[in-house]
């Protein structure tokens, strides 16, 4: 078994035009920076991106929007990206907005091998249009399908040669869920260690879900809102 790839370019080489890809992260926290940069370089177009957010104008998925590589975004919140809003209002970009919990749980359902979930989120709203509803114990729920995607691109803190992953702090967010949901899952990590070095009790994503892993380089880890209190 060899899951180790040299770099992002090698790991994403077979992502074709018009693929559906999942990208982990919340805002710019825990995003697969190396994979995004490699996709920009490779010039893959017509992408459908499933990701909670759409980055900012000049970072994260915003880089793929600038180069018009994205055909459709499936997200819960896209408020930090003016270029996104422009493309959307001009009709250049398709978007499907979903409640954040629905987005997360549809990823989870895929990884758990379940075809759909029932959630109360979005009942009675635009999100419910055209979707099947069902009542349980007197409350109405929407049926939401598990996601189908060609690739999941996730970012972890540490990984081993088996593909086991550990995430750090709130950079975990959607990453372990998407890791379970990709037809092919590509993990970029800050540190890669030989199998046996990570404590099995501490693994967040078991390696069976991860097809490819590489050590990322030059993480910028941009912060959207630096908020601090002064040194006393």
């Amino acid at each position: 078994m060899n899951k180790i790839y040299a770099n992002a370019e090698e790991a994403i080489k077979d992502i074709q035009n018009n693929s559906t890809i999942m990208l982990g992260g919340f805002g710019l926290c825990g995003i697969p920076e190396n994979c995004i940069a490699a996709l920009v370089k490779q010039g893959t177009t017509g992408l459908t991106c499933i990701s909670n957010n759409a980055g900012v104008d000049d970072f994260g998925i915003g880089l793929l929007l600038q180069t018009k590589q994205v055909k459709k975004m499936i997200s819960s919140y896209v408020g930090e990206n003016a270029e996104f809003e422009r493309q959307l209002l001009q009709g250049e970009l398709e978007v499907e907005l979903l409640p954040q919990g629905t987005l997360a749980t549809r990823c989870m359902a895929t990884g758990y091998g379940m075809p759909a979930i029932f959630t109360p989120a979005g009942v009675g709203t635009e999100v419910a249009e055209g979707k099947e509803t069902r009542e349980f114990d007197g409350k109405t729920y929407l049926m939401e399908h598990a996601f189908k995607s060609d690739f999941a691109l996730v970012k972890a803190w540490k990984g081993d040669t088996q593909g086991n992953l550990i995430f750090k702090a709130t950079a975990r967010n959607f990453n372990p869920l998407m890791a379970m949901a990709g037809k092919i899952t590509i993990a970029e990590v800050e540190e890669i260690v030989p199998a046996g070095e990570l404590d099995p009790d501490m693994i967040h994503t078991p390696g069976i879900y991860v097809n490819r892993i590489f050590k990322g380089e030059g993480y910028e880890k941009r912060i959207e809102q630096v908020t601090t209190r002064p040194k006393v």
């Binding site: 919340f26 805002g27 710019l28 987005l103 959607f174 990453n175 912060i223 809102q225 601090t228």
Partner: peptide, 30 residues
């Protein structure tokens, strides 16, 4: 966080840098 101790991997839902407290726990979005 105190100025200079910001951690890009530790933010709130408003994308602001924050800290943990005694007894904090991290988890995935699901």
């Amino acid at each position: 966080p105190i100025e200079g101790n910001e951690d890009a991997d530790l933010i709130n839902a408003g994308k602001q840098t924050i800290t943990t407290t005694k007894g904090s726990a991290f988890f995935d979005s699901a």
